[in-house]
């Protein structure tokens, strides 16, 4: 069977997982080393350039993982970086582009049109339902989306006639990632995670995955989480690693903290426009593999630039 929807195995795995409330603070280097492996299915949280866990993407590239399947509902700039670094074999998404201002990704086109990477296309809700089904612990979820389309035909999505209503429905198979990596506003040391603003698909992604690495803007005391429990969207027992990393989503945005830095993405795009794949690789070697940590990358970006994005966020919500 093409889809691994073996709910029993995934459930048994969750049953065996250590669910005791233990502190999970660690370095990003350690978290990525411990939970990723070559060929893993890795779900990346956030959406396009909102709360993309960029620090973790950098670390994956620095550690040189290969043959990854990346799951992301709307994929962007980070996918280019993973492609040109040789990490990504298969992209499961509904859409991939650096964003409205830049149109198609030249990097993605090169890799997919030359069959160097696979592009597995679902509808946006299709990706959402795959993760939601896994998060719910069921093998599929029904929807009217994708019926009659080439997406459904290419993927071989099954359909059924509803035994109650007689309606035809597409059955979207569950997707259980090996690792989900998300960037959030805050968490305590145990991994109770709070996200401000857009939640995207992060809740379901974390609930669906075997392992969850959370980078957060700030680690707070457990009492602070208990005082605002209504904002917690991922409970500690789903989470394996908590890494404190302010600006860990840069150059994408983090709600409540900073706006995306489109000038940074534009400067990357300029390299691609001028020198294609080599331009993208030069960005990686200067900003990712050529530095020892995400903090060093942020230092290169500069305090002034980062604070400018903080002010920009305040200006938008004002």
């Amino acid at each position: 069977m093409r889809w691994n929807v073996d709910v029993r195995t995934f459930r048994e795995w969750a049953e065996r997982k250590d669910k005791s409330p233990t502190p999970k603070l660690m370095s990003l280097d350690e978290a990525v080393k411990r939970f990723l492996r070559n060929g893993a299915v890795v779900a990346i949280g956030g959406c396009l350039y909102s709360r993309t866990p960029m620090a973790a993407v950098h670390e994956i590239i620095r550690q040189g993982f290969r043959e990854l399947t990346i799951v992301r509902n709307l994929a962007g700039f980070e996918t280019d970086l993973l492609l040109v670094s040789g990490c990504l074999r298969r992209l499961i998404t509904s859409w991939c582009s650096p964003g409205y201002a830049w149109g198609m990704s030249r990097v993605l086109r090169h890799y997919v049109e030359n069959a160097l990477a696979e592009f597995e296309e679902w509808s946006h809700l299709g990706i959402g339902l795959r993760l939601k089904a896994a998060a719910m612990g069921v093998p599929f979820l029904p929807t009217f989306s994708m019926l009659g389309s080439s997406i459904m035909e290419r993927l071989g999505i099954a359909e059924m006639t509803c035994p109650y209503s007689g309606e035809k429905l597409a059955l979207v198979p569950a997707l259980y990632p090996d690792v989900a990596i998300i960037h959030a506003n805050r968490a305590d040391a145990y991994g109770n995670i709070q996200i401000d603003g857009y939640t995207h698909m992060d809740k379901d992604m974390a609930q669906a995955a075997r392992h969850v690495i959370a980078t957060v803007e700030e680690v707070v005391d457990g009492d602070e989480i208990r005082r605002s429990a209504e904002r917690t969207i991922i409970p500690f027992f789903c989470v394996d690693a908590v890494v404190e990393l302010p600006f860990g989503a840069y150059p994408s945005e983090c709600w409540g903290r900073y706006e995306a830095d489109f000038s940074h993405i534009a400067s990357y795009q300029q390299r691609v426009d001028e020198r294609g794949i080599e331009g993208a690789r030069s960005y990686v070697s200067e900003n990712i593999t050529g530095v020892s940590s995400f903090m060093e990358f942020l230092s290169k970006v500069g305090v002034e630039q980062l604070l400018g994005r903080v002010r920009a966020f305040r200006n938008v919500v004002a």
Binding site: S94, R109, E121, S145, M146, L147, G148, S150
Partner: peptide, 21 residues
């Protein structure tokens, strides 16, 4: 061709869902 396209476009995003429902 889907497997080896002349041009790979961004994809559906939510367009399929909008067109469907």
């Amino acid at each position: 061709d889907y497997e080896k396209p002349r041009v790979r476009l961004p994809g559906s995003g939510g367009a399929n869902d909008i067109a469907s429902t």
